[in-house]
Amino acid sequence: MDPITGMIGIIIGGIIVGICVHFIPASAVGAMSASTGIATGPSMLSTGCGLAGLYAAGYMIGESLPLVVLSGAMGSALMIICTMLLANTICAFGTGVAPVAGSYDKDPITGWRQKPFMSPGTDGHSMPTTTALSGIIGALLGGAGGSLVFVSVYEMISPILESTTAVTIAGMVGAGVFLINCVIPAYVLVGKSEGMTDKKMKLMHKTFVSCLIVSVITAVFVYASVVVI
């Protein structure tokens, strides 16, 4: 991969990472069963699943680009489905509430009504089917974006450095770019998101532009430090 392609890879990866956060249902008050979504902040959760994706991509480095990217996507989707399934289990058997979404009345996939199952004074609990699907989509995007950044940086620096060094530095830079971009959407989401059924999906263009600007600066800098200097 020549450095220009690598630079474009970092930019695209960064933008995808920013967008993925919108799809992941997360809310800090979820820890009190008081709102729909996984019980932690959106950026925190996206970081967790993105880094699980990077870990999975680490097994595949050296293979072709689609393999590494898909492996990362699957790693993060696996992390998020494990988390959602077992969070629902805790809600069902530990706190005694059924999964309910606050942002729609009828589940678009299963057609089950949500409102009657919601306990008074809350915005929903854990993840019903559609919300969970949204989480999986988000994790696939996040893992793919993170691995794309990782593989781009790796391909750029691997001719200069020896292989083991290059992998670790690329992993660290990939994680860094991931962390920069996944916190920016938090300014839009303000600590709470219900995934793709949330109204805040309409604000995604703001995330897109912000992540574009930040990723371009990062990518140009990485390009410059590899090629120009």
Binding site: G41, S43, M44, L179, I180, V183, A186, V188, G191
Partner: peptide
Amino acid sequence: LGTGTSSIGYWGTAC
């Protein structure tokens, strides 16, 4: 801010 304290911390360090 809309992000947790921890998010802003590790975002800043990431930059």
